[in-house]
């Protein structure tokens, strides 16, 4: 999609507008968009300085005139000490910063980021994503950032577009898509989710769903008529209990406990043979161990309902 905007590929049909101006057919070099490539694609035969100054250079501006601008951008990205180095001497992070600096120098207000952090170590990715957002905000740019990393997307986006097989599934703020996704795929793809197939039994204030003999309630209204439904709940919204279990409470046995740093992830096999993933803060973790029988509270507010997909559940949520 962003290749269409940049003009690297032309759409078969439809129009693309930038600043209310139609740009179909305009060659790449006249579109004036900043583009950061997944491959980073720094010119290997040029220094950092030459890479960054390439934009003004090819437009025929004297390097001398653009000198201050280049210097300013290098400083802004913290690259001033590396200006004379060649790309292969840089770390992954510095390379990525150079690529951003190179894209920014044209003064374009539209920045297209194609998996800009994809080639970096996880930890570096974490640091740089916030720097990227800050830069965009400080310079008042519009940015389209393409990524397959949903946490990266959520943490820096104003608006998030979930895409699948060339189609937009859903658009919304990260919070909306996380808390109240309109589509099953979004619910599954954005953050972790437990999925249960069941049957809607009653539609009052609370919708009552039967999952293989166990009951769940949702406080959300359902706008579909089908009886067969998929109930979705995020692992971090489920509360775990010990001791006496009241009737109707989901119960099960902890089969696996995984330490994830700030949270602990449990896998609980319920009495009706479902696997439930649960994430709890570490402070609660010591109370529960593998083999323990536990009760689970699945808050109706956190339970989302979707019609059972025509193509089958596995296909509907398939990531490949």
């Amino acid at each position: 999609m962003i290749k269409c905007i940049a003009g690297i590929i032309e759409p078969d049909e439809g129009e693309i507008y930038v600043d209310d101006r139609i740009i179909n057919g305009l060659p790449i070099e006249d579109r004036e968009v900043g583009y950061v490539f997944q491959e980073i694609a720094l010119f290997p035969h040029m220094t950092v300085y030459d890479n960054v100054s390439y934009g003004p250079f090819v437009k025929g501006r004297k390097i001398i005139e653009a000198k201050d601008l280049i210097k300013e951008i290098l400083n802004m990205m913290g690259l001033q000490d590396r200006a004379k180095e060649y790309p292969n001497a840089l770390s992954g992070g510095a390379r990525q910063k150079t690529a951003v600096a190179r894209a920014l120098i044209s003064g374009s207000k539209l920045l297209l980021l194609d998996e800009p952090l994809g080639s970096l170590d996880a930890k570096v990715r974490l640091v740089l994503r916030y720097e990227l957002r800050r830069l965009v905000k400080d310079l008042g740019l519009t940015a389209i950032h393409v990524t397959h990393d949903q946490e990266e997307a959520m943490s820096i986006a104003d608006r998030m577009v979930v895409m699948r097989a060339g189609e937009i599934v859903e658009v919304g703020t990260p919070l909306e898509l996380y808390m109240h996704p309109k589509k099953l795929f979004t619910a599954y793809f954005v953050g972790e989710a437990n999925l249960f197939v069941g049957e809607i039994v009653k539609r009052n204030n609370y919708v009552k769903v039967d999952i293989d003999g166990m009951t769940l309630y949702s406080s959300h209204k359902v706008d579909f008529e089908d009886k067969e439904a998929v109930a979705v709940i995020r692992p971090e919204f489920i509360v775990v209990r010990r001791g006496k279990f009241s009737k109707g409470l989901w119960t099960g046995v902890i089969e696996r406990k995984t330490f994830l740093g700030s949270v602990v992830r449990f896998e609980v096999r319920t009495n009706n043979n479902k696997m439930v993933a649960i994430k709890r803060p570490v402070s609660e973790a010591s109370k529960f161990n593998v083999g323990d029988a536990v009760g689970m509270v699945l808050p109706p507010k956190a339970l989302l309902l979707y019609p059972y997909p025509e193509e089958g559940l596995e296909k509907a949520i398939s990531l490949e």
Binding site: Y130, E151, S155, I156, V190, R234, P235, E236, S262
Partner: peptide, 11 residues
């Protein structure tokens, strides 16, 4: 200074 939404966490 900044609030970042990470899904199950807010930073």
């Amino acid at each position: 200074e900044d609030i970042r939404f990470l899904g199950n966490f807010i930073s």
